[in-house]
Computed example of a mutant assay.
Amino acid sequence: MSESRATAMSPEFYQTIGSQIAAVAPAGWTHVAIRYSQVAHVGQPSAIAVLRDGTRVPLPRVPIKVIHALHQLRTASYQPGAGTWFDADVDVCADGRITADFNYDNPPRVEFDPSAYAADLEKFPRAPAVTPAWLADIAAAPTGWHGARWQFDLMPTDANSSVDMVIDATTTAEAHVWAVAIRERLQTGGYAVHAQFDQGEDGRGNATTYEALVVEVGGGYMSIAFFRDLILWTVDVAADDCDAETFQVAARAALAAIEATSNYVLPAQAASAYERTLLGR
């Protein structure tokens, strides 16, 4: 890859990436290679630590603050008419050095649903002269039901999302009440909903636990994770997992339950035209 354009990496970005990786890297590490790909609202992260003896150790998880920082960096890197990057290679060294390389014009290393590319071009428009042929071909594919994959941040209406926003994955007592109410509402509507608990980090990098609801949608799923001051709504439903109407009803029911119960909202600019159609917005 080549960082052929200026990429807006702030001091806060470097601090977040460096401190978060240092906190989870194994003993004896020399550097950690982060590989992150994103199209539209879906990001795919991975990280491998290299030890002094050359052993490569995959990290079991990439810290959520690192993922959020990269997600925000991609938005900040957009240049009007020229687009933004698809892949980021970030190398964090134990001595504090951080280097980064970005892919702006080649297909991402990770496969994404075709509908995501049209959504990405809507959010980050490119002039025809700087739109690669492979991207133009995918975006011009026939419209229709292509499935849905997204990760949306739902927040209070007065919240401000930024690169240096503190992400705290703790599920508060109030959010637990919301989770119970949303689960009951969706189950009453006939949906299979399962509560699960997972490990995350609080605002100071300490281990914490968050609650999530997993909603079955045909052969796919929706996940609703409850963080402090943030609800993360993840959808992964392929076109052959269910038909469009089944998904639309389920997604609209989930969003209505979240917004009615918590008063957290989906920002109007977050969803693409295709996604807004699915959600009836």
Rank of each mutant, 00 (worst) to 15 (best):
A239Q: 10
D236G: 12
S46L: 10
L230P: 01
S10Y: 06
D202V: 02
S19E: 15
L279V: 02
V42P: 00
V39M: 07
V42H: 08
C93R: 15
G190I: 11
P63R: 01
E216A: 15
R276Q: 14
G83I: 05
P11D: 05
R281E: 09
L278K: 10
V177S: 13
Y78R: 00
T99Y: 10
S37I: 01
W85E: 01
R52W: 03
M1F: 11
A136Q: 15
P142L: 01
R126C: 06
A225I: 05
Y36E: 08
D137L: 09
N206G: 14
E211T: 05
I64E: 13
A173M: 10
E259C: 02
A118I: 01
D53F: 00
Y78S: 00
A207T: 09
P128M: 14
A33P: 00
M165K: 15
R97S: 14
I258F: 11
A192R: 08
D53I: 00
V180H: 14
T234F: 14
A129K: 10
V163K: 02
Q248R: 08
I21G: 12
G203K: 14
R56N: 06
P11H: 04
A254V: 09
A76T: 04
Y36H: 09
Q196P: 03
A181L: 10
A212P: 08
A268P: 02
T16G: 03
S262A: 14
F13P: 08
E275A: 15
Q38M: 14
P267T: 06
N160Y: 14
A69Q: 09
D101M: 08
M222N: 11
A76I: 01
V92I: 09
E12A: 06
Q248A: 09
A118H: 02
R126A: 03
L255E: 09
R126W: 04
G81Q: 02
G218Y: 08
V90E: 04
Q79F: 03
A207H: 13
Q199G: 10
P58Q: 03
T157A: 09
T99N: 09
T188G: 07
N263F: 12
E201S: 12
S162C: 11
Y191L: 03
T277C: 10
D202E: 05
S10H: 05
S272W: 14
A119Y: 00
I231C: 11
G189K: 13
D153F: 14
A257L: 05
N206C: 11
S77R: 02
A179V: 07
Q187V: 13
A148Y: 14
V214K: 15
R126P: 06
N263R: 15
P156F: 14
S223Y: 07
T261K: 01
E216W: 04
V217N: 09
I167T: 13
A192S: 02
T143W: 07
A136F: 07
A88L: 06
P267E: 07
D164F: 09
L232N: 13
H146R: 12
D240G: 00
A94P: 08
S46C: 07
L51K: 03
D202I: 06
D229I: 12
A118F: 03
T75E: 00
W150C: 09
V42I: 10
L255S: 08
A139K: 12
A33K: 01
A195E: 13
V50W: 05
T131I: 07
Q248M: 09
V50H: 10
